Amino acid sequence: MDILFLAHRAPFPPDRGDRIRSFNILKYLSQRARVHLVAFVDDDAVITDEHRALVDECVLIRRTKSQLRAVAEALAKQRPVSLTAFADREFGRAVKDIVARRRIDAVYAFSGQMAQYIPDAGPIAIMDFVDLDSAKFAAYAQDARAPMRWMMRREARLLARYEQAVAARVSASLFVSAAEAALLPGSRALENGIDTVFYDPALAVPVASRHPLIVFTGQMDYRPNVDAVSWFARSVLPLIPDARFAIVGRAPTAAVRALAAANVTVTGEVADVRGWLAAADVVVAPLQLARGVQNKVLEAMAMARPVVASAGAAEGVDHAGTIHIASDARDYADRVTALIRDPSGAAALGRAAREQVIARYGWEARLAPLNDLLGLAGAGRVG
């Protein structure tokens, strides 16, 4: 079986939320079929021989279109900016070339921006929206100021129309959680998993800390993460005596870097996030805008750490009560402080969280529905 895999960002290395999902799906498919990858590539992509060995063809195209040009095209063509930003003739030619040369049995499009490259007729088409982008932009619009409020509302409206049209013409529409899938009728959930062999506390060397350590992990130029750590550092941390807050993740924005202080560490990119997670007395996920299953929560649970999360960050995770949910600043501070003061109870909560992740979130089990959706035969790759 030959599968054409389209991605808005090359799934290498698997070190951020979307790439972790796309990499593991690509890996799963490559064990069962011949995969032909066409993807945009960012400056931080690291492509190894091991990665290339997963696919029969690997066409990587660098994005060069500026945001200003994407906006101008979107306004002129009455299209969402999210789509014009990824509209690229070279990418389209690469897709047509593979379809012309190969007998493609199925297309797997990862992220809504890739729907524009799905052939109009022919093979089975699976659209992995991951999250519902129209709902995300609608949420952004709620606290945006003019003229950005108008742009966000426009994006949400046009994307909602586009998402519905795409869902009507593909074989299946997938989302990262049941809550996201419910927003687009006829869709289904394909949940994220976690590599519990890699995220094992027994394999990590904790970073040194002389004070109680609270850790947040994530891509630090992603707006929901920026908003979350800014709010926590300013509104929650002052309520927790003698604690230190570590913001761990690549590409911190100027707003994130400005949070650095005697009790706040902004690490930037780290070689291995497990050392910071292993050192954490508590891991927090205070996201106010959270969509789908949060990898940061699964990773902390797999590392047997106690987690305090917002309702939104915990919504897509089947945690069976093994993480604590907090609401306002006082609630966060009280829950974090209680865990810091009760290390044995915190450790027991962390162990229970790891057991839940092992039982519930292995990648093989999470991705098994793809066998029926794509008509995959077995686990052995066709040579």
Rank of each mutant, 00 (worst) to 15 (best):
R305P: 03
D342I: 07
D43T: 12
E50A: 09
G268Y: 03
R305T: 14
V317G: 02
S177E: 09
E315W: 03
P212G: 05
A45S: 10
R274C: 00
D328I: 04
R34H: 14
P343L: 13
A254W: 06
N295R: 01
V226F: 05
A179I: 11
A76H: 07
A202F: 02
F86G: 00
S235T: 14
N225L: 07
A302Q: 06
Y117S: 03
A347D: 13
S30C: 01
V382N: 08
F198Q: 03
A87Y: 10
I61H: 05
E299T: 04
L349Q: 14
R103A: 12
M301P: 00
A208T: 15
V166I: 15
L339W: 02
G378T: 13
R149C: 13
I126L: 11
G345I: 02
A255M: 01
S173N: 09
A260D: 13
V207I: 15
R63W: 00
P306I: 15
R161A: 15
R79F: 02
R250M: 12
E355F: 09
P80W: 02
A228H: 04
E180G: 00
G112N: 12
G218M: 11
L54T: 10
P80K: 01
M152V: 04
V46G: 01
K296F: 01
E90C: 02
A156K: 06
I358A: 14
V170M: 11
C58S: 14
V215Y: 05
D195G: 02
A181Y: 06
S177F: 01
D43V: 15
L339N: 04
L83C: 01
A76P: 03
F245T: 05
L26W: 08
P123G: 04
R366I: 11
A94W: 00
A178Q: 11
A178D: 12
H8F: 04
P119E: 02
S344N: 11
Q67A: 15
W150P: 00
D133T: 11
P185I: 13
W363M: 10
R34G: 04
Q31A: 13
S134G: 07
I3E: 02
P13E: 08
V282G: 04
V46I: 14
A139D: 14
A251N: 15
Y199P: 01
D18C: 03
A311E: 15
R154T: 11
G218F: 08
P80Q: 09
L159Y: 05
G383Q: 10
I20M: 13
S310G: 14
V81Y: 13
L203R: 13
R381M: 08
S187H: 02
A189F: 07
A279P: 08
A85C: 05
L29Q: 05
R381W: 09
A348Y: 00
A313C: 13
